[in-house]
Design a protein around this nucleic acid. Structure first.
Lengths: 339, 339
DNA sequence: GCAGCCTGTAAATTCGTATTCACAGTATAC
DNA sequence: GTATACTGTGAATACGAATTTACAGGCTGC
């Protein structure tokens, strides 16, 4: 049988309201009575029921995150794993818990957002958008649901944090040219994903500037898909000398393909990945990678969200850009000796 | 202003109870009235409040999972990422959502379990135990909290699913001996972790049977720690010819160490990892690995838990062992030609 | 024609907590 | 001395939905 504040009140011979006050740390309770209540709580092993509290206070203590299941699960795409990891770390200190959902394949993520926010299952959400949807964003905003977008709001005036993916694409490409590679290609994920598009844009900008030839190959996320497309690319008569690869995992697929193809890295093929994941150490010479600074990304997102949840107004601009940083390692150093 | 069933009732000119019945799909509602209610719901954009429902029905629709933050985050240890991923997949179809928490470093996970279960934040939990604690398990059981243990209950009579880690250790070791390696060592994680201990036990069993020398080196989880210890091990005058490594990530660390040490895999060093993660393809010859079948592990756990949550009695034995399977690849094939 | 039985709906209650309101008791001001 | 302010507490209410209870209206059977 469940122990309630009512029961505690009876045992301690006070009213339920007083029990509630003691629990809330209300100062206006006689120390003597407080002790009595605390003793009763202790003795009867009482625990607050967050469901009842939720109903009364209108807040659940949960924040929501919905992710599109990556190819090969969470293991296949380190971005989400890192994201979740950082969010958990960031939340650990505070009073909030994380409600993690997947978005069914092929379905709109908005259904999940609706499900979580409108039913009041969570107090607020972190949205991770690869293809922002103005109308929906506007609706969430109109309904005054607290949320932060990780990604590009495409003009909607919402709180958002983003990597500068265009810039990230630029520095990766620029670095390869600067290292002496002449013909730089790009192996990207599926079409229509904002992350991909932005990085491609950055890539193309630099190529244009260098008056080179821009070539982009699309494939699914994941090591295996990248390996396959890299095989084809490397077998081309005019195969590129260097490749920017959409993420480290995929870059590892390219490494495998290069090895089978007999190309040495970085002498015969330059490589830069993204995310600066632990995988980068796996290559003997090390893999150059553009670090996304997910920790900071999540840091800003959580700070903004918790401020919103507290009813406050987050400081600074609505949109925050977290700069990417290139980690130079061996895979992109054709001109030896610099490392 | 929030729209409630009360409001809908007023608009549709029925009682709140009727609205509730319509929503619950109760058959005993006149079609005409049902339509009227549904229309009102549609028009006023009503959504059920799960908090209120939770309080009344005593169930939250959440199941909890608490994980000890792995070294290097979720990315550093593919086991948790895979676990979470599978759980999300498994939950996606049903009515349950996942509440994911981390256990603060150095603190007992029981605090989190208490926090989630006793406050009724979640309906049930999946516990992942590396060092089972009889007393706490017994307490959860006494309090009738539905939970499933992934791991070894150490004699407690609770619902549990586990890999047979002893067996897994055996087949990995046996395979290396069978491949022609004479001196097989073991690079394990930290001391006192059940997974490690069990696999070590399996390893030692085979070594004893082969009348070899059992040598186990401990280190932290993660690629880097494994790389370091592997460096030392490989520099030993009587370095082992083959190594069983606690997981694939750590095995990759060993690969890096071996490369710097000038040893070829599998000629100079045989290797078997665990988890059969995508990493295994990253090695040119492929990494042999004992697959944990996390999907099945989670499948059984979820099935058991949902049955418990539904008030039912799960079929079969309380303890389920999911067999491990060795994936043979190049890293353990000293005697060539078999692949 | 009336007791007894469905059927569908409304009214009332409940879940466990936070909070508002009311009130007794004491302290302070004049 | 009464009027006023303040303090700590209990009683009452609200949160939003599910469920139990009660009841009106139509039906059956005799």
């Amino acid at each position: 049988m469940r122990v309630t504040q009512q029961d505690i009140a009876k045992y301690a011979q006070v009213s339920q309201a007083t029990v509630s006050r003691v629990l809330a740390g209300d100062e206006r309770v006689e120390p003597e009575i407080r002790e009595k209540v605390l003793a009763a709580i202790e003795r009867h092993n009482y625990r607050l029921d967050v469901r009842a509290r939720s109903l009364r206070t209108q807040s659940t203590g949960l924040i929501g995150l919905a992710i599109q299941r990556p190819e090969g699960g969470l293991v296949g795409d380190p971005f989400y794993a890192a994201l979740i990891s950082e969010i958990l770390d960031g939340l650990a200190a505070g009073p909030y818990h994380l409600c993690l959902d997947t978005i069914p394949q092929g379905e709109s993520q908005w259904q999940v957002y609706d499900e979580l926010l409108r039913t009041r299952r969570v107090d607020g959400m972190i949205l991770v958008e690869s293809a922002a949807d103005d109308e929906r964003l506007a609706r969430l905003q109109r309904d005054k649901f607290p949320f932060v977008l990780i990604g590009n709001p495409m003009g909607s005036d919402v709180y958002s944090v983003d990597n500068d993916n265009v810039y990230a694409g630029q520095i990766a490409t620029e670095h390869l040219f600067a290292s002496g590679y002449r013909d730089v290609g790009f192996i990207a994920g599926p079409r229509g994903i904002t992350v991909c598009d932005d990085r491609i844009e950055g890539y193309e900008r630099i190529v244009r500037q260098r008056e080179g030839r821009a070539r982009v190959w699309h494939c699914d996320f994941g090591l295996e898909a990248a390996r396959q497309v890299a095989c084809e690319v490397l077998n081309l008569p005019d195969a590129p000398e260097a490749l920017v690869v959409l993420d480290d995992y995929m870059a590892m697929g390219v490494v495998v393909a290069a090895r089978r193809n007999g190309r040495r890295i970085p002498q015969d093929l330059g490589l830069v990945g993204f995310n600066d994941s632990p995988l980068c150490q796996m290559l003997d010479v090390g893999m150059s990678s553009v670090s996304l600074d997910i920790r900071r990304l999540v840091g800003v997102a959580l700070e903004t969200l918790t401020t919103l949840l507290a009813g406050g107004e987050p400081e600074g601009s609505k949109r925050t850009i977290v700069p990417s940083v290139l980690q130079v390692r061996g895979s992109s150093m054709r001109v030896g000796g610099l490392l």
